[in-house]
């Protein structure tokens, strides 16, 4: 398991190759990249600033990966989440999961993202034409996580 919280950008291709090459019995690597949108709630966004809770963030992400490992037979997982000041189209987060077959990796990757969105202590603040504002948590993100509990 690799969990990193960092200011600098990441090379998703490199991370995915590391994951692929680590296990010759892996038949699938599923990855998700989240990036900064230039539009939110109908307003143009020019900058996004990400804050987190050092110490808790890493623990929360590791706990989410462990939860995914307990549900699916996955081999390895990489989570990289950026913090600091980002521009539209900048990468925010990478989640990549390897497994023997695609089904497990697809499900685990989505599960990790749904839990990350609702339980990992990150907060976004966006710069729009009318000023700065904190991004509000969405009920649809809560719903996405809750469906895994059914």
């Amino acid at each position: 398991m690799t969990v990193r919280v960092q200011i600098q950008d990441f090379d998703a291709g490199l991370e995915i190759n590391l994951l692929r090459n680590a296990r010759k019995d892996a038949g699938a690597v599923v990855s998700f990249i989240g990036q900064v949108r230039d539009l939110n709630e109908g307003d143009a966004v020019s900058k996004l600033t990400l804050e987190h809770y050092p110490g808790m963030t890493e623990k929360a992400l590791e706990a989410i990966v462990k939860l995914a490992q307990s549900r699916w037979d996955i081999f390895d997982t990489v989570i990289i989440h950026r913090i600091g000041s980002l521009q539209p189209a900048d990468q925010i987060v990478l989640v990549a999961v390897s497994s023997a077959h695609r089904g497990e990796a697809f499900k685990a990757c989505e599960f990790i993202m749904d839990y990350l969105k609702t339980e990992a202590p990150f907060w976004k603040k966006e710069q729009t034409s009318t000023g700065e504002r904190w991004v509000e948590a969405k009920i649809t993100d809560e719903d996405a996580r809750e469906r895994w509990k059914k």
Partner: peptide, 10 residues
């Protein structure tokens, strides 16, 4: 202890 708003990462 920590207090914060609902999280909005990802």
């Amino acid at each position: 202890v920590a207090f914060f708003p609902p999280v909005t990462g990802g």
